[in-house]
Design a binder for these strands. Structure first.
Lengths: 151, 151
DNA sequence: GTAAGTTGATATTTATAAATATCAATTTTC
DNA sequence: GAAAATTGATATTTATAAATATCAACTTAC
Protein backbone atom coordinates (compact mmCIF):
# COMPACT_ATOMS: atom_id res chain seq x y z
CA UNK A 1 0.00 0.00 0.00
CA UNK A 2 2.50 2.49 1.24
CA UNK A 3 4.87 1.11 -1.35
CA UNK A 4 2.44 1.42 -4.21
CA UNK A 5 1.59 4.95 -3.17
CA UNK A 6 5.24 5.86 -3.12
CA UNK A 7 5.81 4.16 -6.43
CA UNK A 8 2.93 6.04 -7.95
CA UNK A 9 4.34 9.24 -6.62
CA UNK A 10 7.80 8.65 -8.01
CA UNK A 11 6.28 7.63 -11.33
CA UNK A 12 4.82 11.08 -11.60
CA UNK A 13 8.02 13.10 -11.57
CA UNK A 14 8.38 15.51 -14.49
CA UNK A 15 11.24 13.98 -16.43
CA UNK A 16 10.92 14.21 -20.19
CA UNK A 17 10.55 17.14 -22.56
CA UNK A 18 7.99 16.66 -25.29
CA UNK A 19 10.51 15.43 -27.86
CA UNK A 20 11.59 12.58 -25.59
CA UNK A 21 7.99 11.71 -24.77
CA UNK A 22 7.22 11.60 -28.48
CA UNK A 23 10.13 9.23 -29.12
CA UNK A 24 9.16 6.98 -26.21
CA UNK A 25 5.64 6.77 -27.54
CA UNK A 26 6.64 6.62 -31.18
CA UNK A 27 4.32 9.44 -32.16
CA UNK A 28 4.92 13.01 -33.21
CA UNK A 29 5.20 16.04 -30.99
CA UNK A 30 2.21 17.48 -32.81
CA UNK A 31 0.02 14.51 -32.04
CA UNK A 32 0.92 14.80 -28.37
CA UNK A 33 -0.12 18.41 -28.30
CA UNK A 34 -3.34 17.52 -30.07
CA UNK A 35 -4.18 14.93 -27.42
CA UNK A 36 -3.55 17.53 -24.78
CA UNK A 37 -5.73 20.09 -26.55
CA UNK A 38 -8.49 17.49 -26.68
CA UNK A 39 -8.29 17.09 -22.92
CA UNK A 40 -6.96 13.53 -22.92
CA UNK A 41 -4.09 14.33 -20.59
CA UNK A 42 -2.59 17.14 -18.53
CA UNK A 43 1.20 17.51 -18.66
CA UNK A 44 3.38 19.47 -16.28
CA UNK A 45 4.17 22.96 -17.47
CA UNK A 46 7.21 25.00 -16.63
CA UNK A 47 6.77 28.70 -16.02
CA UNK A 48 7.88 29.15 -19.59
CA UNK A 49 4.91 26.93 -20.57
CA UNK A 50 7.11 24.12 -21.77
CA UNK A 51 5.67 20.69 -21.16
CA UNK A 52 7.25 17.96 -19.08
CA UNK A 53 6.18 14.32 -19.04
CA UNK A 54 6.39 11.76 -16.26
CA UNK A 55 6.50 7.96 -16.55
CA UNK A 56 2.84 7.80 -15.64
CA UNK A 57 2.05 10.37 -18.32
CA UNK A 58 3.69 8.05 -20.82
CA UNK A 59 1.66 5.09 -19.56
CA UNK A 60 -1.50 7.11 -19.72
CA UNK A 61 -0.86 8.12 -23.30
CA UNK A 62 0.02 4.53 -24.27
CA UNK A 63 -3.40 3.61 -22.98
CA UNK A 64 -5.06 6.34 -25.02
CA UNK A 65 -3.15 5.23 -28.11
CA UNK A 66 -4.44 1.70 -27.67
CA UNK A 67 -7.99 2.96 -27.49
CA UNK A 68 -7.54 4.92 -30.70
CA UNK A 69 -5.46 2.49 -32.73
CA UNK A 70 -6.59 -0.92 -31.51
CA UNK A 71 -10.08 -0.35 -30.16
CA UNK A 72 -10.86 2.22 -32.87
CA UNK A 73 -12.53 4.58 -30.46
CA UNK A 74 -12.51 8.17 -31.69
CA UNK A 75 -11.14 10.94 -29.52
CA UNK A 76 -14.64 12.25 -28.90
CA UNK A 77 -15.63 8.73 -27.94
CA UNK A 78 -12.84 8.57 -25.40
CA UNK A 79 -13.94 11.90 -23.98
CA UNK A 80 -17.52 10.69 -23.71
CA UNK A 81 -16.35 7.57 -21.88
CA UNK A 82 -14.25 9.63 -19.46
CA UNK A 83 -17.30 11.84 -18.87
CA UNK A 84 -19.07 8.83 -17.39
CA UNK A 85 -16.62 8.50 -14.51
CA UNK A 86 -18.68 9.29 -11.40
CA UNK A 87 -16.14 11.72 -9.98
CA UNK A 88 -18.66 13.16 -7.51
CA UNK A 89 -18.77 9.74 -5.91
CA UNK A 90 -15.00 9.21 -5.87
CA UNK A 91 -14.43 12.63 -4.32
CA UNK A 92 -17.47 12.43 -2.04
CA UNK A 93 -18.77 15.73 -3.34
CA UNK A 94 -21.42 17.48 -1.32
CA UNK A 95 -24.77 17.70 -3.10
CA UNK A 96 -24.52 21.46 -3.16
CA UNK A 97 -21.21 21.34 -5.00
CA UNK A 98 -22.16 18.45 -7.21
CA UNK A 99 -25.41 19.95 -8.38
CA UNK A 100 -23.76 22.97 -9.94
CA UNK A 101 -20.89 21.02 -11.46
CA UNK A 102 -20.83 20.36 -15.21
CA UNK A 103 -18.91 17.15 -14.52
CA UNK A 104 -22.09 15.88 -12.90
CA UNK A 105 -24.49 17.09 -15.56
CA UNK A 106 -22.70 16.96 -18.87
CA UNK A 107 -21.48 13.95 -20.75
CA UNK A 108 -19.08 15.07 -23.43
CA UNK A 109 -15.96 16.03 -21.46
CA UNK A 110 -13.94 14.46 -18.67
CA UNK A 111 -14.30 16.32 -15.37
CA UNK A 112 -10.73 17.59 -15.61
CA UNK A 113 -11.66 19.59 -18.70
CA UNK A 114 -13.95 21.87 -16.70
CA UNK A 115 -13.08 24.80 -14.53
CA UNK A 116 -13.95 23.91 -10.97
CA UNK A 117 -14.04 27.10 -9.02
CA UNK A 118 -16.48 26.95 -6.17
CA UNK A 119 -16.59 23.16 -6.24
CA UNK A 120 -15.41 20.76 -3.60
CA UNK A 121 -12.32 19.94 -5.61
CA UNK A 122 -11.39 23.50 -6.52
CA UNK A 123 -8.16 23.28 -4.56
CA UNK A 124 -7.05 20.01 -6.05
CA UNK A 125 -4.83 19.85 -9.09
CA UNK A 126 -6.50 17.51 -11.56
CA UNK A 127 -3.28 15.83 -12.57
CA UNK A 128 -2.81 14.75 -8.96
CA UNK A 129 -6.42 13.65 -8.56
CA UNK A 130 -7.31 9.97 -8.41
CA UNK A 131 -10.25 10.55 -10.74
CA UNK A 132 -7.75 11.54 -13.39
CA UNK A 133 -5.16 8.94 -12.46
CA UNK A 134 -7.07 5.77 -11.64
CA UNK A 135 -9.60 5.46 -14.47
CA UNK A 136 -7.60 5.66 -17.64
CA UNK A 137 -9.46 3.02 -19.62
CA UNK A 138 -12.84 1.49 -20.19
CA UNK A 139 -12.09 -1.59 -18.09
CA UNK A 140 -11.11 0.42 -15.05
CA UNK A 141 -14.21 2.57 -15.41
CA UNK A 142 -16.40 -0.48 -15.64
CA UNK A 143 -14.79 -1.89 -12.50
CA UNK A 144 -15.57 1.34 -10.73
CA UNK A 145 -19.20 1.09 -11.81
CA UNK A 146 -19.25 -2.43 -10.39
CA UNK A 147 -18.12 -1.23 -6.99
CA UNK A 148 -20.80 1.46 -6.98
CA UNK A 149 -23.58 -1.01 -7.56
CA UNK A 150 -22.11 -3.35 -4.97
CA UNK A 151 -22.68 -0.76 -2.28
CA UNK B 1 -47.60 4.92 -15.64
CA UNK B 2 -49.93 2.42 -17.16
CA UNK B 3 -50.31 4.84 -20.05
CA UNK B 4 -46.60 5.23 -20.64
CA UNK B 5 -46.12 1.47 -20.51
CA UNK B 6 -48.86 1.01 -23.09
CA UNK B 7 -47.44 3.74 -25.24
CA UNK B 8 -44.03 2.18 -25.13
CA UNK B 9 -45.54 -1.10 -26.08
CA UNK B 10 -47.44 0.29 -29.04
CA UNK B 11 -44.32 2.16 -30.15
CA UNK B 12 -42.61 -1.15 -30.59
CA UNK B 13 -44.89 -2.69 -33.16
CA UNK B 14 -43.13 -3.95 -36.29
CA UNK B 15 -44.38 -1.56 -38.93
CA UNK B 16 -41.82 -0.57 -41.54
CA UNK B 17 -39.75 -2.58 -43.97
CA UNK B 18 -36.15 -1.54 -44.25
CA UNK B 19 -36.71 0.74 -47.23
CA UNK B 20 -39.26 2.80 -45.31
CA UNK B 21 -37.04 2.95 -42.27
CA UNK B 22 -34.19 4.16 -44.45
CA UNK B 23 -36.38 6.93 -45.90
CA UNK B 24 -37.63 7.98 -42.47
CA UNK B 25 -34.06 8.21 -41.23
CA UNK B 26 -32.66 9.65 -44.42
CA UNK B 27 -29.91 7.08 -44.64
CA UNK B 28 -29.34 4.14 -46.94
CA UNK B 29 -30.56 0.60 -46.50
CA UNK B 30 -26.95 -0.50 -46.46
CA UNK B 31 -26.04 1.78 -43.61
CA UNK B 32 -28.93 0.42 -41.59
CA UNK B 33 -27.74 -3.12 -42.08
CA UNK B 34 -24.23 -2.09 -41.13
CA UNK B 35 -25.47 -0.60 -37.85
CA UNK B 36 -27.28 -3.84 -37.16
CA UNK B 37 -24.20 -5.91 -37.96
CA UNK B 38 -22.24 -3.73 -35.54
CA UNK B 39 -24.73 -4.57 -32.80
CA UNK B 40 -26.18 -1.08 -32.44
CA UNK B 41 -29.77 -2.25 -32.77
CA UNK B 42 -31.87 -5.40 -33.10
CA UNK B 43 -34.73 -5.27 -35.61
CA UNK B 44 -37.66 -7.65 -35.84
CA UNK B 45 -37.13 -10.45 -38.29
CA UNK B 46 -39.80 -12.31 -40.18
CA UNK B 47 -39.38 -16.05 -40.67
CA UNK B 48 -38.04 -15.16 -44.11
CA UNK B 49 -35.37 -13.09 -42.29
CA UNK B 50 -36.71 -9.80 -43.59
CA UNK B 51 -36.36 -6.95 -41.15
CA UNK B 52 -39.18 -4.87 -39.73
CA UNK B 53 -38.77 -1.61 -37.85
CA UNK B 54 -40.93 -0.08 -35.14
CA UNK B 55 -41.28 3.58 -34.19
CA UNK B 56 -38.97 3.03 -31.25
CA UNK B 57 -36.42 1.40 -33.56
CA UNK B 58 -36.46 4.59 -35.60
CA UNK B 59 -35.99 6.73 -32.51
CA UNK B 60 -33.17 4.52 -31.34
CA UNK B 61 -31.37 4.82 -34.67
CA UNK B 62 -31.89 8.59 -34.73
CA UNK B 63 -30.08 8.66 -31.42
CA UNK B 64 -27.22 6.57 -32.79
CA UNK B 65 -26.98 8.85 -35.81
CA UNK B 66 -26.66 11.85 -33.57
CA UNK B 67 -23.81 10.21 -31.69
CA UNK B 68 -21.99 9.48 -34.93
CA UNK B 69 -22.68 12.67 -36.86
CA UNK B 70 -22.93 15.34 -34.18
CA UNK B 71 -20.93 13.97 -31.28
CA UNK B 72 -18.38 12.33 -33.62
CA UNK B 73 -18.26 9.15 -31.61
CA UNK B 74 -17.11 6.18 -33.68
CA UNK B 75 -19.20 3.03 -33.84
CA UNK B 76 -16.66 1.20 -31.70
CA UNK B 77 -16.87 4.09 -29.26
CA UNK B 78 -20.64 3.72 -29.06
CA UNK B 79 -20.25 0.01 -28.46
CA UNK B 80 -17.73 0.65 -25.69
CA UNK B 81 -20.14 3.09 -24.06
CA UNK B 82 -23.01 0.62 -24.25
CA UNK B 83 -20.72 -1.98 -22.70
CA UNK B 84 -20.58 0.15 -19.55
CA UNK B 85 -24.30 -0.20 -18.85
CA UNK B 86 -24.48 -2.18 -15.60
CA UNK B 87 -27.05 -4.65 -16.92
CA UNK B 88 -26.41 -7.07 -14.06
CA UNK B 89 -27.69 -4.39 -11.73
CA UNK B 90 -30.74 -3.50 -13.82
CA UNK B 91 -31.73 -7.13 -14.16
CA UNK B 92 -30.75 -8.03 -10.59
CA UNK B 93 -28.56 -10.87 -11.80
CA UNK B 94 -27.49 -13.47 -9.29
CA UNK B 95 -23.76 -13.46 -8.63
CA UNK B 96 -23.48 -16.95 -10.05
CA UNK B 97 -25.00 -15.88 -13.34
CA UNK B 98 -23.23 -12.55 -13.43
CA UNK B 99 -19.80 -13.95 -12.78
CA UNK B 100 -19.77 -16.06 -15.89
CA UNK B 101 -21.35 -13.44 -18.11
CA UNK B 102 -19.19 -11.58 -20.65
CA UNK B 103 -21.48 -8.57 -20.29
CA UNK B 104 -20.12 -8.26 -16.76
CA UNK B 105 -16.47 -8.81 -17.64
CA UNK B 106 -15.88 -7.42 -21.08
CA UNK B 107 -16.04 -3.83 -22.19
CA UNK B 108 -16.18 -3.73 -25.96
CA UNK B 109 -19.72 -4.92 -26.74
CA UNK B 110 -23.18 -4.13 -25.44
CA UNK B 111 -24.69 -6.99 -23.44
CA UNK B 112 -27.21 -7.70 -26.18
CA UNK B 113 -24.38 -8.67 -28.51
CA UNK B 114 -23.53 -11.72 -26.41
CA UNK B 115 -25.18 -15.11 -26.31
CA UNK B 116 -26.74 -15.50 -22.92
CA UNK B 117 -27.48 -19.17 -22.48
CA UNK B 118 -27.32 -20.22 -18.89
CA UNK B 119 -27.64 -16.65 -17.64
CA UNK B 120 -30.46 -15.13 -15.67
CA UNK B 121 -31.76 -13.35 -18.73
CA UNK B 122 -31.52 -16.28 -21.11
CA UNK B 123 -35.28 -16.36 -21.59
CA UNK B 124 -35.63 -12.68 -22.28
CA UNK B 125 -35.54 -11.27 -25.78
CA UNK B 126 -32.99 -8.47 -25.81
CA UNK B 127 -35.09 -6.19 -27.94
CA UNK B 128 -37.78 -6.30 -25.26
CA UNK B 129 -35.32 -5.79 -22.43
CA UNK B 130 -35.14 -2.50 -20.57
CA UNK B 131 -31.35 -2.62 -20.66
CA UNK B 132 -31.59 -2.40 -24.44
CA UNK B 133 -34.48 0.04 -24.49
CA UNK B 134 -33.85 2.52 -21.71
CA UNK B 135 -30.17 3.46 -22.11
CA UNK B 136 -29.78 4.53 -25.69
CA UNK B 137 -27.43 7.46 -25.14
CA UNK B 138 -24.60 8.68 -22.98
CA UNK B 139 -26.82 10.97 -20.92
CA UNK B 140 -29.22 8.20 -19.96
CA UNK B 141 -26.32 5.93 -19.06
CA UNK B 142 -24.80 8.62 -16.89
CA UNK B 143 -28.13 9.12 -15.13
CA UNK B 144 -28.22 5.42 -14.42
CA UNK B 145 -24.74 5.59 -12.92
CA UNK B 146 -25.98 8.43 -10.72
CA UNK B 147 -28.81 6.34 -9.33
CA UNK B 148 -26.39 3.50 -8.58
CA UNK B 149 -24.16 5.67 -6.49
CA UNK B 150 -27.18 7.19 -4.77
CA UNK B 151 -28.08 3.82 -3.28
C1' DG C 1 25.72 33.82 -28.54
C1' DT C 2 24.13 30.58 -31.51
C1' DA C 3 22.05 26.17 -32.57
C1' DA C 4 18.45 23.15 -31.22
C1' DG C 5 14.07 22.69 -29.14
C1' DT C 6 9.52 24.46 -27.89
C1' DT C 7 5.45 27.32 -28.14
C1' DG C 8 0.59 28.30 -30.17
C1' DA C 9 -2.05 28.90 -34.27
C1' DT C 10 -3.34 27.60 -38.82
C1' DA C 11 -3.15 25.00 -42.99
C1' DT C 12 -2.48 20.66 -45.34
C1' DT C 13 -2.11 15.76 -45.91
C1' DT C 14 -3.19 10.97 -44.97
C1' DA C 15 -5.27 7.04 -43.08
C1' DT C 16 -9.33 4.85 -42.43
C1' DA C 17 -14.10 4.56 -40.59
C1' DA C 18 -18.40 5.12 -42.56
C1' DA C 19 -21.11 4.95 -46.37
C1' DT C 20 -22.10 3.04 -51.16
C1' DA C 21 -22.19 0.01 -54.79
C1' DT C 22 -22.55 -4.54 -56.88
C1' DC C 23 -24.00 -9.36 -56.99
C1' DA C 24 -26.92 -13.59 -57.44
C1' DA C 25 -30.41 -15.80 -54.65
C1' DT C 26 -34.87 -15.21 -52.14
C1' DT C 27 -39.09 -13.14 -50.80
C1' DT C 28 -42.90 -10.13 -51.30
C1' DT C 29 -46.47 -7.64 -53.64
C1' DC C 30 -50.41 -7.08 -56.64
C1' DG D 1 -46.24 -15.00 -62.43
C1' DA D 2 -43.66 -10.90 -63.25
C1' DA D 3 -41.84 -6.69 -61.10
C1' DA D 4 -40.09 -4.72 -56.99
C1' DA D 5 -37.88 -5.33 -52.67
C1' DT D 6 -34.85 -7.75 -49.57
C1' DT D 7 -31.20 -10.83 -48.27
C1' DG D 8 -26.02 -11.67 -47.18
C1' DA D 9 -21.40 -11.21 -48.77
C1' DT D 10 -17.78 -8.65 -50.84
C1' DA D 11 -15.70 -4.80 -53.10
C1' DT D 12 -15.28 0.13 -53.74
C1' DT D 13 -15.79 4.95 -52.77
C1' DT D 14 -16.06 9.00 -49.83
C1' DA D 15 -16.02 11.82 -45.93
C1' DT D 16 -13.48 13.18 -42.29
C1' DA D 17 -10.86 12.30 -37.97
C1' DA D 18 -6.23 11.92 -37.00
C1' DA D 19 -1.82 13.03 -38.05
C1' DT D 20 1.62 16.28 -40.29
C1' DA D 21 3.56 20.31 -41.86
C1' DT D 22 4.57 25.22 -41.66
C1' DC D 23 5.21 29.58 -39.30
C1' DA D 24 7.36 33.36 -36.48
C1' DA D 25 8.21 34.17 -31.59
C1' DC D 26 10.22 32.48 -27.59
C1' DT D 27 13.25 29.11 -24.41
C1' DT D 28 16.84 26.22 -23.43
C1' DA D 29 21.35 24.03 -23.69
C1' DC D 30 26.30 24.13 -24.47
Amino acid sequence: MQTSKMLEFSDDKPLFPISTAAKLLDISVHTLRMYEREGLFIPFKKKSSQRLFSKSDIERIECIRKAIKESKISINGIRAIYSLIPCWEIKHCAKKSRDKCPAYWEHTQPCWSYKHEGNDCENQKCRECNVYNDYTDCGKIKNLIKTLSGK
